[in-house]
Amino acid sequence: MASVRKTRGESLLLRYIVLGSWAAVCLLPILWFLTVGFRPRTEIITPQPIYWPNWSLDAWYLLTSDWPIAQYLRNSVLAVAGSVVIDLILAIPAAYALSRYEFKGREDIGFYILSTRMMAPAIVAVPIFFLFRNMGLLDTVWALMLIYAAINLSLVTWIIRSYMLDIPKELEDAARTDGAGDLTILREIIVPACLPGIITAAVIAAIFAINEFLFTLLIASTSKAYTMSVALANFTGGSDGVIYNAIALVSFLAFVPILILVILIQKHLSRGLTMGAVKG
């Protein structure tokens, strides 16, 4: 009995060592980046190795006193959250139709939707600028929501569709003979059954959206609509040169909302990312 427990304990220890090392590999760059954010600028760019860094809040003061960083963060979060909501509202019914209804050109439409993703964004940059100018939406968070939603919609639709294809048709047949209509089936049967896929798609869309730079730069011209990704660019040039500690801190702050989101839905997410693979 004792020996059994011992080997079990050892394998558990081994497991923690392996997983712990891997966690360290993943986390170290982020933590290193965070330390960069809290060190004096001169120390970061010196060619000499520094073993015991000096800490400083220079970057933090720079951000909070000279820049409306809270406003940027708020814009980012609002635009990303709004875009994900729009994506889900549009993508779930679209994915359902593409995965279930028989209609002419179904596969072509599915591929067409995905193909919008293959285009270089710069191609549509100018038309989009004029489009939003004519709508009077330039320099607003609303415009960012719409842009982010449009960029990610195809991918979100495609991911959700692939999860829906995995749901047995029998479930819907059962719901239909039980007396449910299409919308009820979608709401009560399909969406709960592919929730992990929907969540996975939402997280991927959120990551893409918060990283978006080109269109944000195009739409936003003041702090009214500046986001974290554009804020970063403020510190990469100009008369002050590259301000590395500020860049590090802004990057870390931009990373926090996604981190919180992922921690909140971790359980569903890991199921979502592996489910398709296991079912093959």
């Binding site: 047949d173 059962a174 709960p192 059954a193």
Partner: peptide, 16 residues
């Protein structure tokens, strides 16, 4: 199907 008042038990049970 929803209006036929015919119930069905499926091969794979099809429980929600």
């Amino acid at each position: 199907a929803r209006d036929r008042d015919v119930a069905m038990v499926f091969q794979g049970y099809a429980l929600y």
